[in-house]
């Protein structure tokens, strides 16, 4: 399978490794993490669903970027990934 350069990132304080060509979603999944946020109402776990940017189930916060679709966002070295909703657009 595809080989890309290793990229280090964190998810809620865990240090993880993905590779160039990963999206944030694929890097989380490759690390065995299949859900990375909880829904606002029912608190149900969510990860990817449509995989192509349509459903917005896969939202994460990355540093200052809020509610980003993890399945569309290329993974970058040093990304600090957190469950979506941990910071509001109005600031922490």
């Amino acid at each position: 399978m595809a080989e890309g350069q290793a990229l280090r990132f964190t998810f809620s304080d865990r240090v993880l490794v993905g590779r160039a060509g990963d999206t944030v979603a694929s890097a989380l999944i490759a690390n065995g993490i299949r859900s990375w946020r909880r829904t606002r109402r029912g608190g149900r776990p969510r990860g990817i669903y449509c995989g192509i940017g349509t459903c917005f189930d896969c939202l994460v916060d990355i540093g200052e970027e809020v509610a980003v679709r993890a399945c569309l966002r290329p993974l970058q070295e040093g990304d600090r990934v957190a469950p979506s909703g941990s910071v509001g657009p109005a600031g922490p």
């Binding site: 299949r34 990817i48 669903y49 449509c50 995989g51 192509i52 399945c71």
Partner: peptide, 14 residues
């Protein structure tokens, strides 16, 4: 809506 349930397209896109 459980993690691990997805569309066929999601698996293919990954």
């Amino acid at each position: 809506d459980l993690p691990g349930a997805m569309t066929p397209g999601a698996a293919q896109a990954l």
